[in-house]
Amino acid sequence: MDPQEYQQIEQQNTPPTPYLKNCLKAFLVGGIICAIGQAITFLYMIFFDFTDKTAGNATVATMVFIAMILTGLGLYRKLGAFAGAGSAVPVTGFGNAVVSAAIEGKTEGWVLGVGGNMFKLAGSVILFGVGSAFFIALIKLILVSMGVVEW
């Protein structure tokens, strides 16, 4: 049996990835997480001295904190298995990546274990997130100085 022939047999007997179902689940859960985030933003604006611009940081911190608790209780893992990108893409997914790696590193001590492993998964998110934010800001700066858009 040659590899091409085998790949055909393998494909025929491997269930296809349910992309549509996965997308729907991701949309639903991701949407709910974002709606919760929006609600928290409103709460900060109504009950505290925040504006729609300044409430962002507090909301992110709160969402990450919730994700941290859920990760510690082993619930975020279950949510992730169901929702896929729906729970991985929002900032709670970032929190989960940081905290799960930190928990795992605990047996190797605080410095090399927790500290050294914490950003193992999330490190690339930070690198490419900050990098792309810089370039987007640069583009916007150019557009603003050309008078095309306003800040």
């Binding site: 491997t14 975020y76 893992r77 992730g80 298995a81 169901f82 928990i103 795992e104 998964l121």
Partner: peptide, 17 residues
């Protein structure tokens, strides 16, 4: 799992295989 895949509490979706 820790060695070959993700941290245990990381929420990842795995395929049917």
């Amino acid at each position: 799992e820790r060695q070959f895949r993700y941290p245990l509490d990381y929420g990842a979706q795995k395929p049917a295989t």
